[in-house]
């Protein structure tokens, strides 16, 4: 136990040795210094008079946003339908593509741990590193603006998410059940069907619904870069500074998100 010896020979308890203490303080000091340095680099071009002005700006925008322009709702039904489709079809596509990736990435199902597994993991990390909006940016350039780009963008972002959580679930299955079905003389496909799929099905359903919920949020903004849905309307309203329309769109987005959260909670409850 680290102790300190005072001048008069008394012993005092310390949680750490002085050396540990010093290292710890030094680590914290480095972290703070780094943060301050980053702050300075980041704000070197910031115009502080704008920042000081921000509350007035906020109040101004806030004032312009109320009341929302309710009659604009007529033009939001289609984009809303598109947004839901982007999320749902995107999730469906991600599941179709993500499930095989998960099986290739899981240690206990991968055909080759040295070649295929790292490749599958690379697919997963690439998909996860890049936000749906950036995928959308890319796909709008490639496929042209529209709902399709949105669907593919959402799908590409979700593959990694679905595959990562699913392969972790696959690695956690009870191997005894697999062994038992193998011992009956079942083929590998049958072992998959009878011993593995039943064990990962709840996880699979949970992951899918969870991702769908997230995708509803994401699909409401991919339109900002031209990939269809409510974001498209948001972009055009922002361009003409039509703040009452913006506030209505935000309300619709909020309502959709709350609804999807409610639906996914219900579904998850029913499955598990």
């Amino acid at each position: 136990m680290p102790v300190a010896h005072a001048a008069d020979g008394r012993v005092a308890w310390r949680r750490r040795t002085p050396r540990q203490d010093l290292l710890r303080w030094f680590g914290w000091f480095l972290l703070v210094a780094l943060t301050v340095f980053c702050w300075q680099v980041m704000t070197q071009d910031t115009i502080w008079s704008f920042v000081a002005d921000a509350p007035t700006q906020a109040a101004d925008i806030g004032q312009r946003m109320v009341p929302p322009r309710w009659e604009y709702m007529d033009r939001l039904w289609w984009p809303l339908w598109d947004t839901i489709n982007i999320a749902t079809l995107g999730t469906a596509l991600a599941v179709v593509l993500g499930v095989p990736v998960a099986f290739l990435a899981a240690r206990n199902t991968t055909p080759s741990a040295t070649f295929v597994r790292p490749l599958a993991l690379l697919v997963i990390v690439s998909s996860r590193s890049i936000n749906a909006l950036i995928w959308a940016l890319l796909l709008v350039t490639i496929l042209g603006p529209g709902v399709l780009a949105g669907i593919v963008a959402i799908a590409l972002r979700s593959i990694g998410f679905v595959a990562k959580l699913l392969y972790e679930a696959i690695e956690e299955i009870d191997q005894a059940q697999v062994e038992a079905v193998t011992a009956t003389g079942a083929s590998p496909a049958q072992v998959m069907d009878y011993a593995m799929v039943p064990q990962i099905l709840p996880a699979f359903a949970g992951i899918t619904v969870f991702r769908w919920d997230i995708n509803i949020r994401e699909s409401s903004v991919v339109g900002l870069v031209g990939a269809g849905g409510l974001g498209l309307q948001l972009e055009s309203s922002l361009n003409v500074l039509a703040w009452p329309q913006v506030s209505l769109i935000l309300l619709v987005v909020l309502a959709t998100v709350l609804l999807s959260e409610w639906v996914s909670a219900k579904v998850r409850h029913a499955i598990i």
């Binding site: 005894a176 059940q177 038992a180 011992a183 039943p198």
Partner: peptide
């Protein structure tokens, strides 16, 4: 035929 100590049934079937 094999019989296991923790039964090794597929629990969700």
């Amino acid at each position: 035929g094999m019989i296991f100590q923790e039964f090794a049934l597929v629990e969700r079937l």
